[in-house]
């Protein structure tokens, strides 16, 4: 009697454990009202045509790529992890330049301008360090570089100004907030600058717009509106980066709902290049460059690659 009981209990315990293990939880457990819901905007992205197709993807041997720029002859420079990589127009690595500090942004003409946190360092394309400019102070936080008529413009998120330097690194001026109530607002380090024949295009991401400035700092036209729809800039601080295409149109990138978009020269929405589905929900800040052939190079930091988008349909 005594021993039989032990066997019975052992058997029951075994059965109990099996039942317990086969009973798995199922179904979503987070109530719907707690979900942050952007599905309708993701869905809207899928409804529009994508005139650009990804034609190549260049994987980068970088842990944390930060910025990308293209030289007129097609050579590409990518910075991150305290190095600058010079790639050819097919993404093959030509040269690896060691940097003294973490790079934040890059521009390239005949030489490579690398923006560190608080200063600009100049390298030749052969890898030779040519100059290191003066620090812009403890508050400096460089986020974008552009070249216009031989002058270098650097957007400084930390101090909310765009610095203007000549090719030798001499400061020639600064572009400041137009006014307190209608000036720069940057809740996030999303402050980029681009240049074309008409002057400078500066992102004012806190107001979801792009503003034109003369090299002397006079504000001109503006475009962009705040909206979750495709033609506007979503979120609190978009766009994140901007570049001007050879034909005068703009390419912008956004975070939150990761988007790469093309805007016409007058600021009207032209096309979606890539959305959340192509870039992934956690794409982060996407830097962008455009080469002479009109190819859009998107630096996908999450994927650690440069993604090349080419027009497949005429707009």
């Amino acid at each position: 009697m005594k021993t039989r009981g032990i066997w019975i209990v052992l058997a029951l315990v075994a059965v109990g454990v099996v039942i317990l293990l086969s009973w798995r939880r199922g179904g979503p457990r987070v109530p719907r009202t707690y979900r942050y819901d952007v599905d309708e905007y993701l869905e809207a992205e899928k409804q529009v045509p994508l005139p650009y197709k990804e034609s190549a993807r260049w994987p980068l041997a970088l842990r944390e790529p930060r910025a990308v720029a293209v030289k007129g002859d097609g050579r590409v420079v990518v910075v991150g992890d305290r190095v600058a990589l010079v790639l050819d127009d097919a993404g093959e690595e030509l040269r690896r330049i060691e940097l003294s500090d973490e790079p934040r942004c890059v521009a390239v003409a005949d030489v490579v301008y690398v923006g560190l946190l608080d200063r600009i360092v100049v390298y030749g394309l052969d890898g030779e360090k040519q100059a290191e400019w003066e620090s812009l102070g403890e508050q400096a936080y460089l986020t974008g570089l552009a070249i216009l008529d031989g002058d270098i413009f650097a957007s400084d998120y930390g101090q909310r100004v765009v610095w203007r330097f000549d090719a030798e690194g001499k400061m020639r001026g600064r572009i400041r907030s137009a006014s307190k109530t209608d000036g720069f607002v940057f809740p996030s380090p999303t402050f980029d600058v681009a240049a074309d024949g008409d002057g400078l295009w500066v992102i004012n991401s806190g107001r979801r717009r792009v503003e034109q400035y003369s090299p002397e700092g006079k504000r001109g036209t503006m475009w962009g509106r705040s909206s979750m729809e495709l033609d506007g800039f979503s979120g609190c601080c978009n766009p994140t980066h901007i570049v001007v295409m050879p034909d005068g149109r703009f390419v912008t990138t956004e975070k939150g709902l990761p988007r790469v978009k093309v805007y016409a020269a007058d600021g009207t929405f032209a096309a979606l290049v890539a959305g959340s589905e192509q870039l992934g929900q956690d794409a982060g800040l996407l830097d962008v460059a455009v080469d002479a052939a009109g190819r859009i190079l998107v630096l996908d930091a999450a994927d650690r690659s440069v993604r090349v988008f080419e027009k497949s349909v005429s707009l």
Binding site: K2, T3, R4, G5, I6, I8, V9, L10, V13
Partner: peptide
């Protein structure tokens, strides 16, 4: 409890 049941259930804590 009968002794056999006690002995038998007594295995469970060890498991």
């Amino acid at each position: 409890l009968p002794a056999w049941l006690r002995h038998a259930l007594g295995v469970i804590p060890t498991l």
